[in-house]
Every structure is written in C-alpha cells, then in structure tokens.
Design a protein around this nucleic acid. Structure first.
Lengths: 338, 338
DNA sequence: CCTGGCACTCTGCGCTTTCGAGTGCCAGCA
DNA sequence: TGCTGGCACTCGAAAGCGCAGAGTGCCAGG
C-alpha cells in the first residue's frame, strides 16, 4: 500500500495539474505544497507512483500528469465532495423554482449545470417506467372511439386514441375509469401490467373486448414511452478542453449527438449515489479522454432519471461532484412539488 | 460594371477556394480553369476585383480569398442552385417517410440536413400561429372540469385543463364542441380569435360563463404556444471549420446554444424563397465567420416554419442551397400527408 | 488590351542551436 | 531505513537562420 505521504503527493499532483493544465515537476510541487520534504524525496515518491501506474510522464524529463488510474484513486480516496456555498445553493433554488413546466425544468437544469461546472451538461427526462401514475383519464370522443390520457407524477402527459371493437356505454366507461384509477394511481408504471391484468374478467361479455383493447393500448404506451429523451447543453465549454483540442473535441461532439450513446452512458451509472467514470472507463471510444459524473434524481426517494456532466478527465472532481449532487437534489424537490 | 471575364475569374476563385481552403493564385487559376487568358491578365483582373472589395489577400504575396462581398456576388449572380440527384432525392423521401410523429419528423430532418450538407442543421418546429386547426376536442373530466385538446394539421397536440365557473351539461358540451369545430376546423390559428368571438352570446345565460372561460383558455393556448421551438444537429461538423478553428468555433457554439439567437436568425429569413446571409450580414457577432442558408417550409403553400444550415462562409453554396431546398420541400410533403 | 518577363516579397519548412525544467542516481547523514 | 543535496544527463520548446517556392506588381512589346 502507498504511504500517507505518497498519497499526499498524488493529491498535490492532481490538484496542480487540474489547475495549471501542465505537467507538474518535483520542485514546483514542494514549493506550492507544504509537504515537509525535499524535491529529491518527492522524486522518489513519484517514481513509485509511476511504477504503480498512477502518474505518467508525457516524455522523458517532463513533469508528471495523473493517469486515469491516478484520478480514480484521487476520486475514491483523496477527494471529498465540495459542497456549494449557500448563496450558490440559493441561486440554484431560485432559478429552478421559476420553471413553468417539465420542459422548462429540464431546460433550466441543463443550463444551470453547464454554467456551474463549466462543462457539458446532460439531463435525462424523467422516465415513465419509474414514474408513478398520477391520473388516468378515459374519454369518449365517439361511441366507439376513446382517448386515453396518462399523467405522471413528474408532469409528463401522454395521450392515445383508441378505436374500440364495439360501442362502449357511458356507464361502462365511468366504471372502467373508476376501477382503473383505483388500481393504478400512485403506483409505479412498471407495476401497472400486473395490477390491471384481470380487469377484463369483471366486465360484461360485450364490453370485454373494448376493455382489453384499452388495456393493451395503455400497456403499449408504457412500453413505447419508455424510450428515453434527454437534453444537453454547454457544448461551448468543450472549447476549454485543452491545447490539442481539435483532435479531442470531434469524437466528443459526435458522441454527444448520439442520444443512444448518452443514454447508455447514463444508464451505466449506478441507480443511487454518484457515479464517476474516468477516461477509458467509458465504454464509448470517443469519450476516452473525458470523465462523466452522473447521479440519479427523482421526485421522491427513488431516482426517476439521471443527470450529469461530461468533461475532460482533467477536471475539478470535488467541485463538479458537489454541483451535480446539489442540482440533482433541487431538481428532485421541484419535481416533487409540482 | 465588371466585365464578363472578371466575373468568371471571381467564380473560379470562389470555387477553388471552397474546394482547397487555400488562397488561390493567378497561375493555379489558369491551370484549373479554361479562362483563355494568361496568368498576367488574370493578375490584372484580380487587382481590379480586389480594389472593388470582392477578394482580398491574407498577406502580401499570397493568393486571394473571396470576401463576404465576393461571396454575395457569387451567390446572387454567378451560382445557381444545384439540384440533388434523383437517388439522393429518393433517399430523402424514404428516410423522412419513416417518421412516426412530429418530433420524429423534425429529428430526422435535422439529421438528414446535417448529413447532406455536412454542416450544422437547424429546424424550427411548425409554429402554431401559422398552422391550421385539424380538430378541437372538449372533454368533461368532472362536472365543472373540462379538458381542451387542440390538434394541428402539422401533428402538434396541446392540452389544457379548464376549471369552469359552473357545472356544464352534457348537451351543452356537445353543442359547444360541435359549434367550435364547425367554425375553426381548417382555419389558421391566427384567425381563430375573430371566428369564435361571438360564440358565448348564442348560449343560455347559465352556460355563458363557462363558454367564455373555455374560449379564453383556447386563445391563451394559441398565444403561449406561439413560443417557437427548434432542434439543431450536426455540431460535430464544426470541426471541419478550418485550420484556425479553435478561435472560430467557440462563439459559434455559444450562439447555437442560445435558442433566442437562432430563432431570430431564422426569423430574419424571408418568408418565401431562400435566404442566404453571409458572414457579417449576420447580426450576431459570433456568427460573423459563418453563413446561414434558410428557407421556409410548410404543409401547404404557406410556410409554417423555417429550417436551414449554419456553416463557414467558405461553403459550397449551390450544393447547400440545393440540399436545403430539397429537404424543405419533402418535409412539407410529409407534413401535408400526416 | 493582352502577354511574357523580371525583380521583389513574403510565408512555410526544415535545420541547428540554445536553454532550462525535470529526471535518475549516488553517496552521505540521521 | 529513509531523507537529502549534488550532479550529470535527457529531451522538448523556443529562437534563429536560410532556402525554396508561390505569388505579386509592373513594364515594355505585340
């Protein structure tokens, strides 16, 4: 195991490199950090850290830069999550509180996150499967034509037209509507299929076909709308990527354009707690030079979607993690209120 | 006025520069184009073109590159719109035909346009004010609670809840629904206010309040949803911007993030016909090194929204204009069908 | 009005030199 | 055993230099 001091050296290297964007040498280190030892000692420690793969030199006789493995250790063991200042927190709250609908909430969140972290922000729309049902409405547009409206606790509304196999009476409709709501309101979408499974049986023969049709459309909606959407912002922050950025930025922009890639990226994040994926830990090749900090958010205890940022591996992890966590928390609050 | 040959020289310069991305000299010009005169003559012509401000030299004794004014002349007088090949047209049609809903249409359009032009594509969602009403549905959720659903000819669906001042009977509801539809279906949103103005008067006293409420919500929806949305794609094409792109790309990315800027940009485009804004003709500073090619599209004769591309001033104008026009045409068709 | 010729002006490129930050290693010391 | 100062060495970045080539402007002649 690495000694206390060597870890301290690694921490110092990461911090300096993140700040200056330049390889850091032993002398500069001892000057900027009170390590209490001489450059020579630091050099020895650095040699060990390099053997272990935590740092590397771009070329012989240049300073060291952290490797992905080095950042990993830094994030896991050496760095905390830097909480935001209370003015910052208040600003977040105020900004998000001004949102008028779900689109607006997501849009504001993305802008906020991009601004706070000065990186690319990605926010997933609350997914239907994990949401709960607030209300199911069933409306007769014509004797054999219904409209299904689904409202979620996160503010999403979905509607579908239904052509019934047979005319459906007002009373049957009211009956179905009432039973449907009593069964599913407050439940998670994922649980709906079992909850309504036996519903057709309790209806008259003549209505059974229609009830089945309605249910199948309902279930279909759940599946279809599981398709996740997301919003991204702050791409102009990519220009702060580094000196050699032309070559770095292209694949990143390409990856960001593929919603599928991003959804997978967020999908890989743990459901609870914060996930940090560093450099090559990201499956997608184009993102091998980036780190992704993601976290779930939700209106209640459970995460209904995820949000996060994408930035260079050389990023301020404590600060970024603090911002991501804070934003997720407040978005959750806003969603719970609305 | 410039002689025929001088215009020909300008055209040749633009074409070569667009292709090679390098200042073009007199000798190269005579070699690659059958101008029928010697380099020396071309040099004289170039000197004139430079005096007139159509071309410029980056430094003494380098070749010439077109100025914004030069591109303007090229677009206005020298270049046609290059039609797409028929396989290309068929591919567009097939790709767009696969769309399942409005979001999908817009999404596919953006990807298509970005791919065809290899530039950044911007597509505005069909605006409600210029759309026509396909159907208005009015549903009773409770005795004094209605739901208004608005369906446009471009596939957009909007819904609103309405709390009525007094209970509203089934028959009154059916009556209102029928009258409303008979008046507004097929009409443009902008015309709706006058068309429904006198509707409350024809109802019983007790229902008049509710009818007014419904109408005010309807009008409110029209106003609110006038807020335009848009989708962009192909930002990774910015990496093909040029050699000195780090400095160019930042303001462009920033401009693209501001929906307001983009909407204004498209808004400035003429309602009919294609608009090309070159370099400094764009009001927004960040876009001074880019050109915008925009055109309106719609389900009928009239444009309901606009779409276009943003790229370096050094772009293939005929090809880009061809692609933009073709895509706009086919999107219009798709919208008309659905 | 066009053309060939000529002198001139730059930029870009490759080469060499220099400079300095940073390293590894070693011998000495607590 | 672990820290330290010293020293020789390496190698990239920056600066200077010279050259080749593309391109120009101008002029005299057809």
């Amino acid at each position: 195991m690495l000694s206390e001091r060597r870890l301290e050296v690694l921490r110092a290297i990461v911090q300096d490199y993140v700040g200056t964007e330049e390889p850091v040498g032993s002398k500069a280190l001892t000057e900027r950090h009170r390590l209490g030892v001489s450059p020579a000692t630091v050099r020895n420690d650095m040699a060990v850290l390099e053997d272990e793969g935590f740092i590397a030199q771009p070329h012989t006789s240049a300073g060291r830069i952290p490797t992905d493995k080095g950042y990993r250790l830094f994030v896991d063991k050496l760095a905390g999550v830097k909480p935001l200042s209370s003015p910052e927190r208040r600003a977040i709250q105020n900004f998000l509180a001004g949102a008028v609908d779900l689109d607006d909430v997501v849009g504001r969140t993305v802008r906020l996150l991009a601004q706070l972290t000065r990186q690319v922000a990605v926010v997933q729309y609350p997914s239907l499967t994990r949401s709960t049902v607030r209300h199911v409405e069933l409306l007769a547009l014509a004797p054999a034509r219904l409209m299904l409206v689904l409202i979620t606790d996160t503010g999403r509304v979905e509607q579908r037209m239904i052509d019934c196999p047979a005319p459906f009476g007002e009373t049957s409709l009211a009956d179905l509507r009432a039973r449907l709501n009593s069964r599913v309101v407050g439940r998670r979408f994922a649980d709906v299929p079992q909850l309504v499974q036996d519903l057709p049986e309790s209806f008259e023969n003549e209505d059974r076909g229609t009830v089945s049709t309605v249910l199948s459309v309902l279930l279909e909606t759940l599946v279809e709308e599981t398709e996740e959407r997301l919003m991204i912002g702050g791409t102009s922050n990519l220009t702060r990527f580094g000196h050699d950025f032309p070559v770095m930025i292209r694949p990143v922009l390409e990856a960001l354009e593929e919603q599928v890639v991003l959804l997978k990226l967020l999908g890989e994040a743990k459901d609870s707690g914060m996930t940090v994926r560093i450099g090559h830990e990201n499956a997608h090749e184009g993102l091998n030079a980036t780190s992704v900090v993601a976290v779930g958010y939700g209106s209640g205890d459970e995460a209904v979607a995820k949000l996060g940022v994408v930035g260079p591996t050389r990023m301020d992890y404590p600060g970024t993690m603090g911002a991501v966590r804070a934003v997720a928390r407040y978005v959750g609050q806003i969603l719970a209120e609305s």
